[in-house]
Amino acid sequence: MGEADLSLAPLSDPFVPELYRTVRVTRELRDTVTLELAPLSGKRPAFEPGQFNMLYAFGVGESAISISGDPAEEGTFVHTVRNVGAVSKALSALEAGAAAGLRGPFGTSWPVEGAEGSDVVIVAGGLGLAPLRPAIYHILANRDRYGRVSILYGCRNPGDILYRHELEQWRQRLDVDLTVTVDHADASWHGNAGVVPSLIKRTAFDPHDTVAMVCGPEIMMRYSMNALRGAGVSEKRIYLSMERNMKCAIGLCGHCQFGPEFVCKDGPVVPYSKVARIFALREI
């Protein structure tokens, strides 16, 4: 049961991380970096947009981090990490060449295939754009399979805008309706001001044939659910990505429970219809 087993049977023990090496670090924001991690041996496992990995920083611990890279690209896992705790601090301090542990991918995915033929509304708040980016890559790479595609992105301040360069590129496309807004505009900002859910009623989509994908702070998701439902989108076709404390990522540690759901295995992406009963309640 030595180390050799790890590379031969990667998922034989889902508690044990694989070894990865940091191949590139991109500073996104003051407290946020994007890491590209390549496996030391073997192929990087395939993943679906919306899934996450457990990243391990030596001696500090593990943290659940969503995958933010392009599912069509091979070789590395791309993770955007904000420095908000002991583990994420250690992860965001990794330099090119540094080793990290990784288990995954885990969890459910955005319904990028189920949405084919329909209008798509993507609503992201803050760092919530990171788990949606793989879905955006997929949809834009297969643009002809979808109806109207809208991306609504909101941040607290202009300085919090993630993936700014890519947002500008997507904005240039004529087949995507992309709107960025900030809660608190400063003198440098000449774009939209206001919270992201308020953009929904200004967006063109067929409410009876739309799939919505929403990720951001819970309060932002609550208002987005209300706006989307108010616009006539079915609860079954609104998807959101939940965040909860996770220790094991495989449904055994109990931490991520949200009512009957284990966010790690029944989520993180769930149709709103599955959680609507308890989503508006506090401290679930």
Binding site: M1, E3, F15, V16, P17, F58, G59, A99
Partner: peptide, 17 residues
């Protein structure tokens, strides 16, 4: 569950017997 050992270029992980 497992333990990790530092090496010159990173670390290794070994499963607990």
């Amino acid at each position: 569950l497992w333990s990790a050992q530092k090496t010159p270029d990173g670390f290794t992980i070994s499963r607990e017997e």
